[in-house]
Simulated scan of single mutants.
Amino acid sequence: MPKLNTFFQSFMLFGMMFFTLISCSNRNLASDDSSEASYIGVHNSKNSLDWAGVYRGVLPCADCEGIQTEVKINDKSEFILSKRYLGRSAQVLVSEGFFTWDEYGGKIFLENEQMSFMVGENRLILLDKDSKRIKNDTGEDFNLVKKTNNIRNKKWYLVELNGEEIHINETLKKLPYIQFEEGEKVSGHAGCNTFHGSYNLSDGNRISFSQMGLTRMACADMETEQNLMEVLEQADNYHVRADTFQLNQARLVPLARFEYRFFD
C-alpha cells in the first residue's frame, strides 16, 4: 500500500509538471501572437501622420554639390520625383510612379528609383539600400522637409501686378522678387533696384511694410518697380496657398501675385 501511494504521488507530480509546461508554452504563443497582432493595430506613420504632400531639400551626391530634390506623394500611393544635380547641370529630371509602405507603416519605397525614406512628422528621412538612416559629417539625417504655408525664407517671384502678368522682356531684364526673413526683415529686387525694409505679420493674415529703401540705379523699365513699391505701401493683408503668395488691400482685387519656384 505504501508503494501504491508513492506511485500515485509521483504520477500526480509528473502530471502537474506536464500541465505547467503546456500552460507556459501556450502563454508564450499567445504572447507572440498578441505581439504581432498589436503591431498591426499600433499607431504608425502611415495611419497617424498627415504624410501626403510635397517634400523638398538637398540630398547628398557623390560627384556634385548636392541633389536638389522634390518628392510629391499622395494617398493613392503615387509619387512625382524631381531632382537637379547642383554644380553639374541645370536640367530638372522628373519621374513618377508608385510607392509602397513597409509592413510596419514607417517607411516608403519609391518603385524603380531605388530610393526609400523613413516617414516622420513633416519630413522624409533618407535611407540607404539596407533601409538604414544616412548621416552627414555631423551625425545628422538627410531630410526632405514638407512644404507648408510659411512665407519666410523663400524667394517669391512676381508674376502679376495690378491685374497684369509680369514677364521678362527687353526692358525688364530680371523678374522682381521678394523675400521675408527672420527678424521681420524683408528684401528683394524690384526689377531694376534692390530694396530692403521691415514687415509685420498679425492675426487674420494682416501684413504691413515699413522703412523701405531702394538703391538708385536707372533702368529702361522703371514703371514695374514704381508700381511694385506702391503695392507694398498699400497692401494690408495677404493670402498664401501652396506655392502662390498674394498681397491684397482690404477686399479689393489682388494687388500682386507671387510664385515660389523651388528649382530657380
Rank of each mutant, 00 (worst) to 15 (best):
F99I: 02
Y238D: 01
S187G: 11
K83L: 09
R27Q: 07
I134S: 10
N5E: 15
D243T: 02
Y157W: 10
H189A: 06
Y238C: 02
L247P: 01
V54Y: 09
I151S: 03
K147H: 05
I67V: 15
E181P: 03
Y39S: 13
F19L: 07
N28L: 09
R84L: 07
H189L: 14
I151Y: 12
M118F: 11
L49C: 10
R88V: 06
N26S: 03
D137R: 15
N74T: 02
H189E: 05
F263D: 02
L172I: 13
A218E: 05
V94T: 12
Y260R: 01
I166M: 11
S208E: 10
D221E: 10
N193L: 07
K174Y: 12
K173W: 13
T224K: 08
H239E: 04
F98T: 02
F18N: 07
F142G: 00
C64D: 04
Y85N: 03
F18W: 08
F11A: 08
D102K: 03
R152C: 07
S38I: 06
P176A: 04
E96S: 12
M212H: 06
R257M: 07
M1Y: 14
G163A: 02
K46P: 02
F195C: 13
K146F: 05
S187D: 08
F180G: 03
V231N: 09
V71Q: 08
N200C: 09
K147R: 07
E70Y: 11
V240Y: 01
M1A: 15
Y157P: 04
E170Q: 15
K3Y: 15
V253I: 05
N205L: 06
G191I: 02
N44W: 00
K146A: 01
C61Y: 07
S45G: 12
M222C: 05
K107I: 10
Q211A: 10
E225P: 06
S208Y: 06
E182P: 04
M16W: 07
E36M: 14
K174E: 14
L124R: 04
H189M: 08
G15Q: 13
F98S: 03
G41L: 14
K173I: 09
G139R: 07
N205W: 06
K72E: 14
W101C: 03
K155Q: 09
S10Q: 15
M16Y: 08
Q179P: 03
S95P: 02
I151R: 09
L201S: 08
G204I: 11
C61D: 13
S202C: 07
L201N: 12
N74V: 00
Q91P: 01
Y104P: 01
M212N: 03
I40Q: 09
L247E: 00
K3A: 15
G15V: 13
L214E: 10
I134K: 14
N248I: 00
G120A: 04
M222E: 02
K174H: 10
G213F: 04
L4I: 15
I166D: 12
R206M: 13
G105I: 00
H167Y: 13
L228Q: 01
N112D: 11
L228W: 03
G15I: 11
T171I: 04
G105Y: 01
F79L: 01
W156C: 04
L228T: 02
E121M: 08
V240G: 00
E140I: 03
F142R: 00
A235R: 04
R123I: 02
